[in-house]
């Protein structure tokens, strides 16, 4: 599943940040997931728990859903993404590559495909908390 690749990316990045900041024990990882990518949170959480390294054994993964807001670059209309408006094949395509939304969605007001994903695109690490190495 694609969720496993995203979880792998999170674990790898958190480990790199911990290394840089000298954290020996990571206690909390705050993650934001954009609606546009339609990540299956249960699979994602399971993948995180399976991929966690020794430094992450005690880490709590807090996952926050981020609503996808779109803005038309032509007429400035703002709207929210709804996966239900796409057919199954389009939903799957947007899941893998969220930018594909430009092939399947239009501005509801002027019909332009030139829109911006203002928020809620993909997976982001908001912050991590941990305990530093001694000495």
């Amino acid at each position: 599943m694609h969720e496993w690749a995203l979880a792998e990316a999170v674990i790898k990045t958190v480990s790199q940040i911990a290394e840089k900041k000298g954290l020996a024990d990571i206690r909390e990882v705050n993650i934001k997931i954009g609606e546009l990518q339609q990540v299956d949170v249960e699979i994602f959480k399971f993948a995180l728990s399976q991929l966690r390294t020794s430094k992450l054994q005690r880490a709590k993964f807090n996952i926050k859903r981020d609503e996808t807001k779109l803005r038309c670059r032509v007429c400035s209309y703002k709207w929210s993404f709804s996966a239900a408006k796409l057919d199954e094949e389009a939903r799957e395509a947007v899941h893998f590559v969220p930018e594909i939304a430009h092939a399947f969605m239009k501005c509801p007001r002027c019909g332009s495909r030139d829109f911006e994903v203002v928020s809620g695109r993909g997976v982001w690490i908001e912050s991590i908390k941990g305990v530093k190495k001694h000495g």
């Binding site: 694609h2 690749a5 995203l6 990316a9 094949e89 799957e92 395509a93 893998f96 590559v97 969220p98 930018e99 594909i100 430009h102 092939a103 399947f104 495909r113 030139d114 994903v117 695109r121 993909g122």
Partner: peptide, 29 residues
Amino acid sequence: IIYYTRDQASPLRGEDFSNALIELLAVTI
């Protein structure tokens, strides 16, 4: 990208192009 776009045009600005490229580089095994 044709596996996902079907026969549709996919107009992408620079930032969107970069995001799509990063996504595919990160998840393609």
